[in-house]
Design a binder for these strands. Structure first.
Lengths: 247, 247
DNA sequence: GCGTTTGATTGTGTATACACTTAAGATGAC
DNA sequence: GTCATCTTAAGTGTATACACAATCAAACGC
């Protein structure tokens, strides 16, 4: 064992720190989203800290926040755990997301300004036009953008916040789901239809379409979960972020 | 025979170890719920730490968790803030709670076992019978118990978790709301009706009743918020816990 | 007088030290 | 060989030290 850090007073080398906390938090969040932190495993704070080149303090701060977001569980005196993947939780996520989206789209119809509707239609159009030139991760990005802009336009801050959380936790699953059923075309058309219903302020119709659009995935939950587990443990999961995107 | 821990209490003021983290977290959460941490104000970590007789470390851990639960905001280099009360957020909370409850009651009808329905009916009956012998905080307790047991029985873990969070954040508001409109009697009857609809597995009816039951408060949001602000700044709010801790 | 600058104070953000808990490996008894 | 106990290593939980950012106030210039 070699001694390091013999000089407690010499701070200069590390003193940059403007946004350490936020940076670490986002890095951890990303690791949780793409399942670099594997389900069922304990999170090693020391290892994470040295990987991110910081001390354990900001790491623990970030981990604590991820607990309340549902990404991690804290077992006293044992540490932080990434919860195991189980069908019940996945189903819960899809169902809750559905409830939030249905609320959002209804409120959007009632409250959104015409400019916001324009923006939404634009998103749907661009998405539909881009067609199959997009990679699967890009499709998920577009899909999230569409849905979250509805949540924002609904002027319900909780809906926006919670939908964003849900989407982060489900991102990997939706990646798998979209890849399986080749949904890009279908998704684009769905969005366009929803946008049209919103344009006419037909809230009932918009809600119905949205329900249909979302519930599609609920049917395949079991298959999606199974596929996801395989991906995670074969290490193919992290490929979406950064440079190495497959198509 | 398990090994005897030689000195559980001998560390004295230094390290009581047992459950400090959890205890501190719950204390902070309570302070957030009853608005001992005042809206718009910065949270002073040092003061909190000395009040709770611990160091800043577990305090910061707890505060970080409360950020993700929506109780606090973190402004870099300035600290943790309790967000100011504003009508938009309160309305968002009521709306989101409604969406979660409607999902819960529908799923409950579909999935709950007969024993869970029995338990629910029991809650409703006891509540209704207790009538006006209950104090307002007790009524809120009973009300939360009823609704959260529906969320649990729905077998949707996200619904249960999020409803619990929402209720905590709204607890103070509901206290005010119930006190204003003298709802105890009405609430009890509503619960009984909902329970009857659930008994017959009439999900549409149950959802309709629940919507009606919850949306009552939405109408008074503005008044409720105004009253709440008065209470908070007059310091009368903390009285519900029976523990006069505002200092 | 009024605005600007600068000094001191307060408080946050991170690193590090240390105590305690848990888990695993080694040693010994039977 | 198997089980129990001791030893030891690893890792979490808390406290503390210290650098830096923000804030307030007093001094100064105009």
């Amino acid at each position: 064992m070699t001694k390091e850090k013999p000089i407690p007073g010499a701070y200069g080398a590390r003193s940059r720190a403007a946004d350490t906390g936020q940076r670490v938090y986002e890095a951890l969040r990303q690791k949780a989203i793409d399942y670099t932190l594997r389900p069922g495993e304990r999170v090693n704070e020391v290892r994470l800290a040295s990987e991110l080149d910081v001390s354990r303090t900001p790491v623990r701060a970030g981990l604590n926040r991820l607990v309340s977001e549902g990404f991690l569980k804290l077992v006293p005196n044992k540490g932080f755990y990434r919860p195991a993947i189980d069908i019940e939780t996945i189903r819960s996520l899809f169902e809750m997301r559905s409830a939030i989206e249905l609320l959002s789209v209804r409120l959007f119809c009632e409250r959104a300004g015409d400019d916001q509707i324009d923006a939404l239609e634009h998103l749907a159009t661009v998405f539909q036009r881009a067609d199959d030139t997009l990679s699967v991760p890009q499709i998920v990005d577009e899909d999230e953008r569409f849905h979250e802009s509805i949540a924002h336009g609904s002027r319900n801050s909780e809906a926006a916040r919670l939908l964003s959380d849900m989407n982060s936790r489900m991102r990997f699953l939706r990646l798998v789901a979209l890849e399986r059923q080749n949904c890009n075309q279908v998704t684009g058309e769905d969005h366009a239809r929803i946008a049209r219903a919103i344009r006419t302020r037909d809230s009932a119709q918009a809600v119905a379409l949205m329900r249909e659009h979302i519930d599609l995935m609920l049917n395949d939950v079991t298959e999606i979960a199974r596929e996801a587990v395989v991906r995670i443990y074969l290490g193919a999961g992290a490929s979406e972020s950064g440079d190495n995107t497959f198509s």
